[in-house]
Amino acid sequence: MSFLLRRIMTAMLALLLASLVVFAGARSLPGDPAIALSGEGHDPTVNAVIRAKYGLDRPVPVQYARWAALAVRGDLGRSIRTGLPVAEMIVRRLPITLELAILATAITIALGVPTGVLAATCRGRPVDYIMNGIGLFGLSVPPFWIGLVLILVFASTLKWLPASGYVPLLVDPVENLRRMMLPAFVLGSGFAAWVMRQTRSAMLEALRSDYVRTARAKGLPSTAVVMRHALRNSLITVVTVLGLELGVLISGSVITEQIFLIPGFGKLIVDAVVTRDFPIIQGVALVSAVAYIGVNLLVDAIYARLDPRIRFA
């Protein structure tokens, strides 16, 4: 498993760099934190005490080490506005966004992969053109506009689903799903277009390959060739794309949660920017970078499972 070991090493390196970026970003914010904490007085001795208390008088590398050590132990500081620990606020919001992301990814896979396979197997026929057209349209439509249109149709006009708001899954699972349906669709559908295009091109390549010709030549039924041989090999590309687009999913959740007023991770970010709550912004940036690096590590592990060539390369 030397592949995984090497991969974990690069992930750690990326994590280190990402934390440096977050730290540097937070330090380049305008305003002296000591003055912000001491308030209007600007008493130099008070400022010095505060600097000493928070270690702001130490060299920058020492400050980074302290901050990183605290972050590793899950201490991301306190929100300026509410005084609550940032880590706690993030942990409370994360499951909501996670549910949204899982539902959205399910919709993405359910919509994107079969249509991609269908388009590839029907290459050059009307089905292919229709799928491609829908895919291109899906890539071009802003997700928040789809959200507004869906609210207009399903909530305001047809009154089938509530327009916004959130009910915890454990309190009322049915109502929770009813409220999560539109947001998950909004988040998942745009991305499905992207997955469809990737699946299609990966499938086209796989269908041209020698092993597919061999499978056909030995008389395997067409579905077996497509599903067992071509699709399995195309899935590597699809899994990679899904991992890489986690960033898009995080960005998308910010917008989706804003439209549907879901109190998740994304809403936390927007609210933090509006109130200029820097510890939250810093914490959120760090957590999303960690999530992204972690998921891509996972993707590479799955990758190695799907394709032995990678494991032993």
Partner: peptide, 22 residues
């Protein structure tokens, strides 16, 4: 390439949000 990979780890909205804040 490592730097580029690190940049990839930040969703565009997070970068935009950070810049808007700064």
């Amino acid at each position: 390439m490592r730097l580029v990979d690190t940049l990839l780890a930040f969703p565009y909205l997070i970068i935009a949000v950070g810049l808007a804040a700064i």
